[in-house]
Design a protein around this nucleic acid. Structure first.
Length: 872
RNA sequence: GCCCCAAUGGCGGAACUGGUAGACGCGCCGGACUCAAAAUCCGGUUCUGGCAACAGAGUGUGGGUUCGAUUCCCUCUUGGGGCACCA
């Protein structure tokens, strides 16, 4: 063994050993329990950042730990390779997205290999491989056959200058990021997946996901947003009938049908047919509808904009009283949500209250709640107005409780044919069409004679040409005749291929299945999937808590219902990694495009008047930058930290140890490399301890003679550390405290000076435990240290060590003594003391006596094995 | 705006099930080694008062439950994530 620790050499040797022996290549094996350890695959943005290092190290620690626990472990890796950044790179560098993406993959693969992850690289693939996305297309066609996939119009952000659809990310303050032009909403035909058909199951099955964090299940449940309520139809009044030229009714969904008699107005979305009809005869309204069309489609924008409305002048009829209710157009009503119309009950809904106040609409109280006193005049809004209570002023329904009123009104509506109870979900169907080039083509051909025609299975995959370069003005596929010109599979006439591609969430909705059978050219999935899946552990960022995880669950259920899988939930246990945050700095020249700068390049200068100014040096001189706060490390905000520098200076083990020691995995982590020296120092200290120990000659085995007190103490420390670390890694996934336990153990070894044969045997045992426990976290250095300690096998083949209960045994323990809840001392009691003995020992303590100050004891609380609290 | 999460020394964090607040590490201070520095090793390090023993205060804010609250409940503040076309 080398005297001094040289990370580069140690890491090269260990990685070489793993590769030569194909240590991490796995196959199905019925003789061992399997463990599928899956980390979210990365988008190949160019470089790894510390968020990746954290994610994949967590996965690697668990994978290596489970391997030591005797499992057949699969840890695969691939690339979420389609997406917008490749197009942006293409625009700025004039490189085809395919080339840029594949270069990034090659680079990042190298970075990952340098970090020494126990990955079966033989299963690697990228979602931009035709052999993979072939099956996106194939399953899409199956969905189309069964009505899970369908076509309808949807609203998108439209940049009128570039004549292109913008992603939400490309809309900044309501304007296109490149052109600065105000964004408009535009309706276009798109393909949708009917995820709402699965809403109830996606919600119900959350209860079975006991291995998922509670917060993720809560977020998903809220997202699905099941609500029980009532559909109500308000028949058109004569003026509306005349304007629309037909009979009909305005339909709304409400969870508060008990307040139906408090309706004083109706509000519809700007795109609603009633609004459009009214606008034809009313220029002011037409202008307002037009104004609503501006701005982005993002919910956050819509929800925070000022609530505005205008009357249509048209009316509908109250289903019971027949009263004429005015119909307003409101910018807070969304066409894509529910029926695109809501009933306005200002007395019992805060938003309606605000709207009525602003527009001088009447307010009618119809509920007397327990805490909100019934008053005729409502001054400012109080939350009690929205509470349930006795229904009043509601004709035949007056006097009923909330539930009775809901039941009675719903029954009466149903009798009239003007409504019924209904379950409504907040969840909307999944629009998968993207008017973009770098994605999986949607396998559809549009024929003037035959309409929408699926590409025959035999012609799959529809291959995406890889040589196009987008220029920011729309989808290059739509300009490439080579791509879109085709013949109709039905009539053989000339036809046009669909040029929209699929949402990249489609790619990531089933990649984890394909890792089980990446080489199957005939089928999407095969029997190997049933061996490996569901994944036993999934690890990824909390930012995916809703969309990705919900889509993956949905996709799995669809495949199950198509008979391809036997299970309906893809991930048994989920660990949501907290994000690694870093400061975000940007600069936006007047009228220009915003640029982001890496915090490492930002320095702070003091202005003439002493205020701090953040600046970045550029070729054009210093540029003043704005601090936008903290955010997750990402390419788009330029705040990623590449681990490469760290690995070059300290080695991969130090980088891994530092990340794992910094905080528990689920916690958000603000980036700082302070402390990285400490991680490096610890590894070196461990190396030196092992070197010193083994260079003193052969180590005898522990003989049968009793240990000295010091020897027992070190043995106890070793097995205590082992017990703690095993629990921390295996159950709690708190690697920081496992590392701390081993640090304490190493401190104990350093203090242990016994050079007798028995002492050396005890030290050997302690060092072996330290090396084995650290092996999943810092595998390279442990690989070398294990050899140094005389390991007969390679470390990767060693089992996890076992705690010796005898080593832990103690004959006395310490009890904390409090007086009135304040710590006043400790007493040592024999391990077999009963409660009375502990109590007596505590009361006899002189410090306790002092603080009791002769006062009578009112109560004594004894917590066995821990504490005595004397209350006076 | 809505949903979810977080806040503990100078810093990262520990305290797992309501029971010793600050484990472990960083940084800093002092010492040893050295011509000197780095590295390494040893000791100290929540704040206030005190030479000390010790006492008091203290886990974002304000309140509550409890013998006892970093932990449970309510309120507010700040930061972060998500909001359906960033991934």
């Amino acid at each position: 063994m080398q005297e001094s620790y040289e990370p580069a050499a140690v890491e090269r040797a260990a990685q070489q050993y793993w590769q030569e022996h194909r240590v991490f290549a796995v196959r199905e094996d019925a003789s061992r329990p399997k463990f599928y350890c899956l980390s979210m695959f990365p988008y190949p943005s160019g470089r790894l950042h510390m968020g990746h290092v954290r994610n994949y190290t967590i996965g690697d620690v668990l994978a290596r730990y489970m391997r030591m626990q005797g499992h057949n472990v699969l840890q695969p890796m691939g690339w979420d390779a389609f997406g917008l950044p490749a197009e942006n790179a293409a625009i700025s560098n004039n490189v085809p997205p395919a080339k840029w993406t594949r270069q990034n993959i090659a680079y990042m693969r190298g970075q990952m290999k340098a970090l020494g992850f126990a990955i079966d690289w033989e299963r690697e693939f990228a979602t931009c491989d035709a052999a993979y996305y072939h099956w996106n297309q194939w399953l899409f066609l199956r969905m189309l056959e069964r009505g899970i996939a369908y076509r309808k119009t949807g609203v998108v952000n439209w940049d009128p200058v570039d004549q292109t659809v913008l992603a939400n990310e490309q809309v900044i303050d309501g304007r296109g990021w490149r052109t600065g032009a105000p964004v408009e909403k535009r309706e276009i035909p798109m393909y949708y997946l009917n995820i709402t058909r699965y809403a109830d199951e996606l919600l119900q099955a959350l209860d079975e996901l006991g291995g998922w964090p509670e917060r993720v299940r809560v977020m998903q449940a809220n997202w699905i947003g099941r609500s029980e309520g009532c559909e109500v139809a308000f028949p058109y009044a004569p003026d509306t009938r005349a304007a629309l030229g037909r009979e009909g009714a305005l339909k709304v969904f409400t969870t508060r049908v008990d307040t139906l008699f408090g309706v004083t107005f109706m509000a519809v979305a700007a795109e609603h047919p009633v609004a459009l009809a009214a606008a034809q005869a009313n220029p002011q309204l037409a202008a307002f509808v037009d104004e609503c069309r501006r701005g982005s489609v993002m919910e956050a924008d819509v929800a925070t904009q000022e609530k505005k409305g205008l009357p249509t002048g048209l009316h509908v009829l109250h289903p019971f009283t027949g009263e004429q209710l005015p119909v307003w157009v409101a910018n807070y009503v969304l066409m894509g949500y529910g029926e695109g119309a809501v009933m306005g009950v200002p007395a019992h809904d805060e938003r309606d209250f605000e709207f009525a106040g602003k527009n001088a609409l009447p307010i009618v109280m119809v509920v007397r709640s327990a805490t909100g006193a019934y008053q005729d005049v409502l001054a400012p809004w109080i939350p009690a107005y929205a509470e349930h209570g006795e229904v009043v002023n509601s004709g035949q329904f007056s006097g009923l409780s909330f539930q009775a009123a809901v039941d009675a009104i719903a029954a009466a509506l149903e009798k009239k044919g003007l409504g019924a109870k209904r379950v409504h979900y907040r969840l909307r169907d999944w629009g998968i069409s993207r008017q973009r080039y770098w994605g999986c083509p949607i396998p559809i051909i549009h024929c003037e004679r035959c309409g929408q025609v699926p590409v025959p299975d035999a012609d799959l995959p529809v291959v995406l040409p890889e040589d196009l370069v987008p220029d920011g003005s729309g989808n290059p596929l739509a300009k490439s005749a080579d791509f879109y010109e085709c013949t109709c599979p039905k009539c053989s006439g000339p036809a046009r291929r669909e040029t929209d591609t699929m949402d990249t969430f489609v790619d990531s909705s089933w990649y984890f299945l394909r890792f089980a059978c990446p080489d199957d050219g005939e089928r999407m999935v095969d029997a190997r999937v049933e061996y490996w899946l569901p994944a036993d552990q999934y690890i990824g960022g909390i930012e995916h808590a809703i969309l990705h995880l919900l889509y993956a669950r949905f996709w799995t259920k669809v495949m199950r219902d198509f008979g391809q899988l036997s299970f309906g939930e893809p991930f048994t246990r989920l660990l949501t990694q907290g994000m690694v945050l870093n400061h975000i700095y940007s600069h936006q020249p007047a009228g220009g495009r915003k640029r982001y700068f890496n915090p490492a390049d930002v320095y702070v200068r003091r202005d003439a008047d002493g205020t701090e100014v953040s600046e970045v040096a550029t070729a054009e001189g210093p540029v003043r930058v704005e601090h936008e706060g903290l955010g997750k490390m990402s390419k788009s905000e330029g705040n990623g930290v590449d681990p490469e520098g760290l690995v070059a200076r300290f080695g991969a083990d130090t980088a891994r140890l530092f990340m794992m020691f910094a905080s528990p995995p689920e916690q958000t982590l603000e980036w700082s490399d302070e402390g990285v020296q400490g991680a490096s120092r610890f590894i070196r200290r461990l190396w030196n301890a092992v070197y010193e120990h083994v260079s003193a000659g052969a180590v005898p085995r522990r003989d049968g003679t009793p240990l000295t007190p010091e020897q027992s103490k070190l043995r106890r420390a070793a097995h205590q550390a082992l017990a703690k670390a095993t629990d921390d890694i295996g159950r709690r996934h708190n690697f920081n405290t496992a590392i701390a336990a081993i640090m304490e153990l190493l401190n104990a070894v350093a203090r242990f000076a016994d050079a007798s044969p028995q002492g050396r045997a005890v030290r050997q045992e302690a060092l072996e435990i330290a090396v084995l426990v650290l092996a999943p976290i810092v595998p390279h250095v442990c690989h070398a240290l294990w050899q140094g300690l005389g390991g007969e096998r390679a470390l990767v083949d060693e089992p996890w060590p076992k705690v010796d209960p005898q080593a832990l045994a103690q004959d006395t323990y310490q009890i904390v003594v409090q007086v009135n809840g304040k710590l006043r001392g400790h007493v040592s009691v024999p391990a077999d003391s009963d409660e009375a003995a502990v109590r007596a020992a505590a009361l006899a303590d002189e410090r306790v006596q002092k603080f009791m100050d002769g006062k009578p004891v009112r109560r004594v609380i004894v917590v066995p094995g821990k504490l005595v609290n004397v209350v006076i």
